[in-house]
Amino acid sequence: MSEATILSRRHGAVAQVVLNRPAKRNALDWPMLDGLVTTLRGFDVDPDIRAAVISGEPRAFAAGADIGALGEASAMELYRSGFSEQWDAVAAIETPIVAAVSGYCLGGGLELALICDIVVCERGAVFGLPEAAIGTLPGAGGTQRLVRAVGKSLAMEMILAGRRLDAEEACRFGLASTLVEAGAAEAEALALAGRIAERAPLAARFAKRAVLQSFETPLSAGIAFERALSALMAASEDRAEGMRAFAEKRTPRFTGR
């Protein structure tokens, strides 16, 4: 029996997905993406899970989509396959997601990291969208999300000319938020997810939705959306508990209600 390409682990209120196809440097194929989406959806409906981490292996977070599988498909097969829509399914996950990036983070792997809410990377990580070198272009949101992360000029250079960013550049240009030494990305991502898990879970999910809305709407509409979510939170038990705990100078006990 072949080894599972998606592994799931629990660390208290933090769940972890490990991309586990090391022989292919975690190249993303349909079964792997389907397993990833199914696992993340399971996290979303588990009230005990408050944050998630996606990690790979030391050589690669994910070195891209599986070229062999894609190269054999016709245009209509690709269009109807729903393959690229798997990234959309990850983007729809409400649980806050932290990416722990080591090694190669290229093509579809970078598109996956761009969907994650926070990116932790370690020295030696490499980021890029090399699709133009093999006669294609990013098809899972890379052209749209990368320009929002690093700006037009750098995104164009990465997509058109194949420029790759090292870990230090990724942090400097806003692609990642935290840089750690080699071998430490997973531990740092889990620690960061743990801090998220200590917050009120409803508030964290609503805040994630509000931040993501900023990419979809004008400023005035985004502020109105934020204000509506903030007002809705006033009806939650967690908000009342947070206020009481603050007044009583104690740690709040959030329940997600």
Rank of each mutant, 00 (worst) to 15 (best):
T38P: 12
R239K: 08
P22E: 08
L33R: 08
L28P: 04
S102W: 00
R257M: 10
R239W: 10
A240S: 14
V90D: 05
I115P: 01
G183W: 01
E226S: 13
W87S: 02
A99C: 03
L219D: 10
L137K: 11
A204F: 00
R123N: 00
G109F: 14
A200V: 08
F61D: 11
K208V: 03
G141T: 09
D29R: 02
A197V: 11
G35L: 02
A191E: 04
R172S: 07
F225K: 07
L202S: 12
V98F: 03
I196L: 15
V180L: 00
K152N: 14
G139N: 10
R244P: 07
M1Q: 13
L179T: 01
E188W: 00
F254W: 06
E72D: 10
L137V: 15
A51E: 00
S153F: 08
A140K: 04
G56P: 03
F173D: 13
S55I: 06
L192V: 02
I6W: 14
P218I: 09
G128F: 03
A203R: 11
A170I: 04
V14L: 02
R41M: 10
D46M: 07
D48P: 02
A62Y: 01
E57C: 12
G141D: 07
E94W: 04
R148D: 12
A240Y: 10
S102N: 04
A191R: 06
E3A: 12
R41D: 13
L232S: 11
I159Q: 06
L160C: 14
D34T: 04
L129Y: 12
G142L: 08
V119C: 11
A15S: 03
A65W: 07
